[in-house]
C-alpha cells in the first residue's frame, strides 16, 4: 500500500482534472467556458497551495503573479496590428514583437517567477500577520502599477484581441502540468524541508533547515506557476486589472481553504467544487431553469454563497473538505492529524 500511495496522490488529482475536461466536451459551448475557467482556477489554486499549503504562511499576494503573468502573455501575444488601438502608449520594443501561444505561456511563467523572486527576497523574512499584510501590499502595488503604467500594458483598457487559445485541452494540460510540478516539489527534498518548517519552525531550524531559503524557493516556484496560470487566463478571457484583483484573490483563497490548504488533493478538489458552485450561481444570476423551476438570482449571490461556504468550512471543518490530507487508499488508521496551519 505504501508504495502505491504516491501514485494515487498524483493520479487522483489528474483524474479529477481529466473527468472535468471530459464533462466539458459534452456540455453546451457556453457551459464549456465555465469548465475551462474552472480548469484555469485549478492551476491558480495549485500555485497557491505550493506556497501556502507547504509553508503555512499566508499570502494575499499571489494574484499579483497571476496578473503579471497575464500581462506578459497578453502584451506579447497580441497581434502587432491590434496593439496600437488597445495599448497606444506601449513601449516600442513591446509594440513590434509578438510571440505565439506556447512561448507566451513560458514567458508568463518566467516573469511570474522572477517577480516572485524579487518580492520574496525581502518578504520571506516575515511570517504570520506581517506576511499577510505585506503580501497584501504587493497585491495593491501590482494592481496600482498595472492600472496606470501604460508603457507595459493596456492600463485601464481590457485585453481584447489576445488570441483565445486556452480551450479545454490547453486548460486541462496546464492544470495537469501545475499539479505535476506541485507534486514533484512536494516529494522533493525542498518540499519535505518546507513542510517540516510548517510543522515546527523551531525544530526545523534546530536540524539546520534555512526557513528563509526554503520559503523563498517555494515562493518563486509558486510565483512561476501563478504567472503561468495568468497566461492561461489571459488566453481565455479578455482581462483587465479588476479581473486579477481582490475578487479573484478572495475566490482562489476560498477554493484553497474550502478544499483543504495542506494537500494537493484539497487544492484541486476545492478549485473544482467551488468553481462548479460559482458557475452554477453565475448562470442562475442570469436566470436559468432547474428541474422545471425557474431560478433567477440577483447579481452578487455568488460571492455571498462562496463567502458563507468559506466561513462555514473554516468554522466547522478548519482543515477543509479533504481534511488537508492527500487521498489515500489506507483507512482512517493512517490519517495524519490536522496540521499546524489548521489549528
Amino acid at each position: 500500500m505504501r508504495r502505491i500511495d504516491p501514485v494515487v496522490q498524483l493520479l487522483a488529482p489528474v483524474a479529477v482534472i481529466a473527468a472535468t475536461a471530459l464533462v466539458g466536451t459534452i456540455v453546451s459551448s457556453s457551459t464549456e467556458t465555465y469548465v475551462v475557467n474552472a480548469l484555469v482556477n485549478v492551476s491558480i489554486v495549485v500555485a497557491l497551495y505550493l506556497f501556502i499549503g507547504n509553508s503555512g504562511v499566508l499570502s494575499f499576494g499571489h494574484i499579483s503573479f497571476v496578473a503579471v503573468g497575464a500581462w506578459t502573455a497578453g502584451v506579447l501575444s497580441m497581434p502587432v496590428d491590434e496593439k496600437p488601438a488597445i495599448m497606444p502608449n506601449l513601449a516600442g520594443f513591446l509594440t513590434d514583437h509578438t510571440v505565439g501561444n506556447i512561448p507566451s505561456l513560458a514567458l508568463a511563467a518566467a516573469v511570474g517567477g522572477i517577480y516572485a523572486f524579487f518580492v520574496g527576497l525581502p518578504l520571506m523574512r516575515l511570517s504570520g500577520l506581517a506576511a499577510g499584510i505585506a503580501t497584501f501590499g504587493v497585491l495593491e502595488i501590482t494592481h496600482n502599477v498595472l492600472r496606470y503604467w501604460e508603457k507595459i500594458g493596456p492600463g485601464l483598457n481590457t485585453f481584447s484581441a489576445v488570441p483565445e487559445t486556452t480551450g479545454l485541452l490547453q486548460a486541462a494540460l496546464g492544470a495537469v502540468l501545475a499539479v505535476a510540478v506541485a507534486f514533484a516539489y512536494r516529494r522533493s527534498r525542498f518540499g519535505r524541508l518546507l513542510s517540516a518548517t510548517r510543522e515546527d519552525v523551531a525544530a526545523a531550524r534546530a536540524v539546520g533547515v534555512s526557513v528563509y531559503r526554503q520559503r523563498l524557493i517555494a515562493f518563486v516556484l509558486s510565483g512561476a506557476l501563478a504567472g503561468f496560470a495568468g497566461g492561461l487566463y489571459v488566453h481565455l478571457l479578455p482581462l483587465n486589472t479588476e479581473s486579477v484583483y481582490l475578487n479573484l484573490t478572495f475566490l482562489t483563497l476560498a477554493m484553497l481553504v474550502i478544499g483543504g490548504a495542506t494537500s494537493l488533493w484539497g487544492a484541486v478538489v476545492g478549485a473544482i467544487a467551488v468553481s462548479a458552485v460559482d458557475s452554477f450561481l453565475a448562470e442562475a444570476e442570469n436566470g436559468i431553469r432547474v428541474f422545471g423551476w425557474s431560478l433567477d438570482l440577483p447579481a452578487g449571490t455568488r460571492i455571498v454563497v462562496v463567502g458563507a461556504l468559506m466561513a462555514l468550512v473554516l468554522i466547522l471543518r478548519p482543515a477543509g473538505l479533504t481534511g488537508g490530507r492527500e487521498l489515500s487508499l489506507r483507512g482512517a488508521g493512517a490519517r495524519r492529524l490536522l496540521t499546524k496551519f489548521a489549528r
Binding site: 499566508l58 504570520g128 500577520l129 499577510g132 476560498a254 449571490t301 473554516l314 468554522i315 496551519f341 489549528r343
Partner: peptide
Amino acid sequence: VFRPLRAHSPAVMLVATFAVAFLLQSIALL
C-alpha cells in the same frame, strides 16, 4: 464568527474575517 474561531491561529482567523468581509459586502450589493 469570532466565537467559533477563537481557538485557531491568527492566520486562519484573518482568512475567515476576509471571507466575512466579502460576504457582507456582497449582501450590501444584493
